[in-house]
Amino acid sequence: MKLAILVRAALILLAFSLLAACGGGKPVRRINPPAVSIQQLAVQADGRWQLELRVQNFSTVPMQFDTFEAGLEIEGANAGSIYVRPALEIPGQSADVVSATVSPSREAAERLAQSARDGSIGYQLRGEVVTSEPNRKFPASHASRLSPVPGRPNTYR
């Protein structure tokens, strides 16, 4: 009888200990470098490029994105500079899209036209992302490929 009471008390104590261990304090704040990539590139009638930039927050906390400044290369040719001030808050582990316009170099525009005929376009972004919350500067570098969008001339994703 006494043994059964002791076993029950030990099981109850064990259950409460396990329950307390699961509920620990606040979530861990992890600040990780964000990533910026081109979600879409559309060639406008005047020759400028309209970019949709995907900004990804890999941190566990919301971040306030103030500026993004980068150089853009298309198939190894300098296409120009990107500078945007999105003033955008992105929740942790989320992403959002910002727009930018680039007046590409002649060489980059020619490479884009040639690559479009070949099927896909390689690009590279190199620059810096500045956040105000938290107050940090992150290097940004991304290389990938864009493909023509079927049914949408002069548009690449």
Rank of each mutant, 00 (worst) to 15 (best):
M1C: 05
K2S: 14
L3A: 15
A4D: 12
I5H: 05
I5N: 05
L6K: 13
L6T: 14
V7T: 15
L11S: 04
L11Y: 09
L11M: 08
L18Y: 13
L18A: 12
L19G: 15
L19E: 09
A21N: 11
A21S: 15
A21K: 11
C22K: 12
G23Y: 13
G23P: 02
K26P: 09
K26C: 09
P27W: 04
V28Q: 10
V28T: 14
R29G: 05
P33N: 11
P33A: 11
P34E: 03
P34M: 02
I38V: 10
I38F: 04
Q39N: 12
Q39E: 13
Q40F: 02
A42C: 01
Q44G: 01
D46A: 01
D46V: 07
R48S: 07
W49R: 00
L51C: 00
E52V: 03
E52I: 02
E52L: 07
L53D: 04
V55H: 05
N57H: 05
N57R: 02
S59T: 06
P62Q: 06
M63V: 12
Q64A: 11
Q64N: 10
Q64H: 13
T67V: 05
F68K: 05
E69S: 15
E69H: 13
E69W: 09
A70Q: 10
E75I: 08
E75M: 09
S81H: 12
Y83T: 14
V84L: 03
V84F: 04
V84W: 06
E89L: 10
I90S: 00
I90A: 02
P91K: 10
P91V: 08
G92Q: 06
G92Y: 08
S94R: 14
D96S: 13
D96T: 06
V97T: 15
V97W: 06
V97C: 01
S99E: 11
S99Y: 12
A100V: 06
T101F: 06
T101D: 01
T101N: 00
S103C: 02
E107S: 07
A108F: 02
A109S: 14
A109L: 08
A109I: 03
E110D: 13
A113M: 07
Q114S: 11
S115R: 00
S115V: 02
A116F: 00
R117D: 09
D118Y: 11
S120C: 08
G122F: 04
G122I: 01
Q124G: 11
L125Q: 07
T131L: 03
T131H: 04
S132H: 08
E133I: 09
R136E: 10
K137N: 15
K137W: 11
K137T: 15
F138L: 02
S141Q: 12
A143T: 13
L146R: 01
S147C: 08
S147L: 13
S147G: 08
V149L: 09
V149Q: 05
V149W: 06
P153N: 06
T155W: 04
T155Y: 04
Y156A: 00
Y156M: 01
R157I: 10
R157Y: 12
R157F: 14
